[in-house]
Write a protein that binds this DNA or RNA. Structure first.
Lengths: 186, 186
DNA sequence: TTCATTTGATTGAGTAATCAACGACTATCA
DNA sequence: TGATAGTCGTTGATTACTCAATCAAATGAA
């Protein structure tokens, strides 16, 4: 295996294996992207863990439930809404249930089904966590960017989402959706 | 706790608690960003796991080692280079050592220190994994974006990194760095 | 009806990440 | 020299995520 093949000097080109290696600029972009995403979500998680005792993934579950009619969601819907596998949703809800923030109910229309329901305590915890979390998102995402850059984040995110082949970016609910006073998330 | 306080109707404003809630547009941006990052890195990990039997975090360790002089790095340097804790680096290197891709050596100048060294087998595994990984990165990040948007990714990532307060985006090494034929990464 | 298929959700095993605690060594300064 | 503080790296416990297997109920075709 030759070095030339493995290390084409950061020039934009295709080698004998047909690989379209990254150019020097693309390397910079890629590493900046990976590094910033890592640092960003680590900071989000650290703040939430410290101030609310939960990671972002759990926070998102509480948010989706808070936005749902009657604060209830079928397990499968919850999994889809949080971009998680059914297994992950099931495990996570089990933990949240231990803390008393979520409760499981039998689905009245499908005896296989389960409804995850946000408890009053869960709602209170979410409401208490929201301001600090939103402030953290603002400080590290919106404040450092210009309005044009924020718009670009939306456009770029949508393009990546489409390329990855995922359903679509998860929209916040409409106000007439029947959601019962959701916490403003994010 | 009032709903008005918790759910200010997606208008941009500050409520009585002083929280700067997200506007409707910001909600869309935030959810698109979170969703696309999640989907993107999940796809990257899926491809690497399927075709090379390792997650991105392990791939990055092999890349940093491949770029280092003598393919060696002190554990602390490796942790910094991969934006990981020492603990995480230590655990990860232990797994990679079990697979024979990395070897530990005593540091000659500091008897507390350990050097993680990429083995020939590890290098071969990395070289074999690189084309598929780079192709995945291209398909899901660079191909769907315009050159201007790619440039914006760099600028925006740098701004976020600075706001998070992390050292700086990890640069790819210069060619005169003494690196021993690194795999082109990412 | 009966049987096969699909869907809904959970479980358990295996792997990975975090956190706090620790042992070993170095550096500094009296 | 000796005491103290700091650095290097590992360990073990806890928690989280993934994957494959499983069970139960609904669906649909013969």
């Amino acid at each position: 295996m030759s070095n030339a093949q493995l290390f084409p000097g950061y020039t934009e080109r295709v080698d004998t294996s047909g690989t379209r290696w990254l150019s020097a600029d693309e390397q910079v972009t890629w590493r900046a992207f990976v590094g910033s995403c890592h640092a960003f979500f680590a900071a989000i998680d650290t703040q939430l863990q410290r101030d609310a005792g939960m990671p972002l993934a759990y926070y998102e579950i509480l948010v989706r439930l808070s936005e749902a009619p009657d604060r209830q969601l079928r397990m499968t819907q919850l999994a889809e809404a949080t971009a998680a596998s059914k297994s992950r949703a099931s495990h996570a809800v089990a933990r949240l249930e231990e803390r008393g923030w979520v409760r499981r109910r039998d689905c009245p229309t499908d005896r296989r089904g389960q409804l995850a329901e946000l408890t009053d305590e869960g709602y209170a915890v979410l409401a208490a966590a929201a301001p600090g979390h939103v402030e953290q998102v603002r400080r590290t995402l919106f404040d450092p960017l210009t309005p044009e850059q924020v718009q670009q984040v939306t456009v770029i995110s949508t393009a990546i989402m489409a390329a990855v082949g995922s359903p679509q970016p998860c929209e916040p609910p409409c106000e007439e959706d029947g959601a019962s006073c959701p916490v403003p998330a994010p």
